[in-house]
Nucleic acid binder design. Structure first.
Lengths: 184, 184
DNA sequence: TATAATATAATGATCGTTCTATCTATAAAG
DNA sequence: CTTTATAGATAGAACGATCATTATATTATA
């Protein structure tokens, strides 16, 4: 992929996450990226397509982080007390939260901003991400019920949201504690 | 308060919640309210002030709902098994969730959209709301630790967020189950 | 020589906000 | 009961700014 295109996607993700999708203009994105407007339109057909590619890349990164970190915790489990798959996923999500700034879930925010157009591709993508996440949770421990999988998703969403108004590390720690109680 | 002003606040809240703050223009608000633009500016100095009044009214309504419903559940507790104060608050929040459409927390969304301007009055108001909510939770059962109060807040935030992508009543039910396990 | 990126300007639309001028309703004064 | 005064609401145009998008023409790179 072109360097310019990567720069654009990188800066667009930062600005969208900091300011929201509708608040940020393409002009600011190309200015901050030191890239000409026509170069943006050479790589993306429209702002919507840029938004979609930003979200797709973020989803890929997030799911990879979750899978990698959960696997790592499984192999390098802390001595005698080895966590369940659900607790490991909670820990992996906690790590993501503390590594990233506290502005909530970009997919939920996208759905909220574009949600009025019910069949907008951004909304479809956001819904797909949430479904993928739930299926990932369920598949990590098929012995668990669908209700239990939903509960872990609720914990993860809760931590993401609460970290917007409370201290991130504290929130992450409490989420793991709750996961340990619920999924011992 | 003037009827026109109430109509404006009512319609503005609906449109902001459905489309977001930056996506919706004042023109759409006054059109949908069948009110002249100058009447809006006669009651509100700016769009920001309209946003702030919408949020203030919503906070008042939400906190009243929480207090009323939690008190009601305390007095009319279900026979032998009377819930703890924390579980009652969870139930009250669940009721709010099922009564309102599923577009997340308007205060978090406001903070996300205006969060770049760190000292913007909308951000201050949103932060104040989250602090008020946590203090309300803590005060409902002073015997509980601050960590436990934070956990209930996490459950409530999680249910609000998860209800955006999963079925509301199901999410509300599971949140209450989790609260009962954690705060028996 | 061909491809990619550049700067700049123009498009038409919409944004928040203000101005002007007209209209309507209620309330005080005759 | 009128008349007049006051205030609130109306429609519509205009403001400058910004929006996403496109056109043009030039420069750099490979």
């Amino acid at each position: 992929m072109s360097t310019k295109k990567e720069d654009l996607l990188h800066m667009a993700e930062i600005l969208f996450y900091d300011h929201g999708f509708h608040s940020i203009g393409l002009k600011k994105i190309v200015n901050e990226s030191n890239i000409a407007m026509m170069t943006l339109y050479n790589h993306f057909a429209s702002k919507d397509e840029l938004v979609i590619e930003v979200l797709k890349r973020r989803e890929e990164r997030y799911m990879e982080h979750l899978a990698f970190f959960a696997t790592y915790l499984k192999d390098h489990g802390e001595g005698s007390e080895r966590d369940s798959a659900f607790v490991r996923i909670a820990s992996a999500h906690a790590r993501w939260l503390t590594d990233h700034s506290a502005k909530g879930c970009l997919f939920l925010r996208a759905k909220e901003e574009y949600g009025a157009q019910h069949d907008h591709p951004v909304v479809t993508l956001a819904d797909g991400h949430k479904r993928l996440l739930r299926e990932f949770v369920q598949a990590s421990d098929p012995a668990r019920s669908a209700e239990e999988a939903l509960r872990l998703c609720l914990l993860m969403e809760g931590a993401t949201a609460l970290a917007e108004s409370e201290e991130g590390p504290l929130v992450a720690r409490e989420m793991i504690v709750m996961a340990e109680i619920l999924f011992a």
